[in-house]
Amino acid sequence: MGLRVENLRVYYRTLRGYVRALEGVTFSVADGEIMGLAGESGCGKTTLGHSLIYLKPPMNYIEGQVFLDGQEVPIWDMKRMNEFRFRRISVIPQYAMNALNPTRKIGQLIADLLAAHGVDFKEILPELKRRLDLVQLSHEVLNMYPIELSGGMRQRAVMVISTLLNPSLLIADEITSALDVSTQKAVCEMIVEFRNRGFVRSTIFITHDISILYQIADTIAVMYAGQMAEKAPTEAILRSPRHPYTRMLIASLPQVGVRYREERLRGIPGAPPRLLDPPPGCRFQGRCPVAFERCVETPPFVEVEPGHFVACWREI
């Protein structure tokens, strides 16, 4: 059944008013799907990821619904969300390398966390060890403090911890951004492996770096300034993007399989709107080469082909 998000609106409350970081976001992720979530820095990817598991002030839930395997997820309720966290929705945070308490041995930390969810550490230990093997961590790490591990090892430990209870949904936020290319590749393979082995069902893989998604994502969703611009199978996004923003984004990348191109990469001129007081309607207006009168209304996110969604008046 997977994940379904409908018309999600989440704002940050600040002294100068609401920062409208998520404005009517709608999409779904199927069982077994790895959805890449891409978009420029500041477009609301982290906010979306957090909203699904950890919606805490200054984030403000405005409206919208989230369903996981057909059941409504009360994302606005920090307390009730505890039933979902870890067991059914889990996260590998952007700061994974610092996510472990420095003064607790990793094994003890896992035991504490499991006990809080009523799971017996001893029972799960064999499986835990298998998974440590899978990410090439020695069982010894359970007996170590986080500082005794390298940054990469800590991240892998967090990957294992976060997925230990086989969640239905895993949110991985920029987990490759701080890594060198070869490590990036290894981490991506682990994410795919986790899905293949059924450790996690649906995955939202957040990154500002679209090229990394070729290797791993089944589908790619592109966000722009707090709105969903386009979502489609990876192939379709790369071969035949429909939203003007996605097109420009893809065009600015070196093409897959092509070693280098003669012309210089084309950056996208202009800057995204300030989310404090964004223009009404399509938020891409200001930079869109094909904008017209209609664009002052918000375009709906519609399925133009099976599994291919676009929010653009030109494409409807």
């Binding site: 950890y54 996260v91 472990l100």
Partner: peptide, 16 residues
Amino acid sequence: ADYSRYLESLGAPPRL
């Protein structure tokens, strides 16, 4: 701190 946020997002009780 990050480690607190991580625990919180994994649903650890405030006590822990």
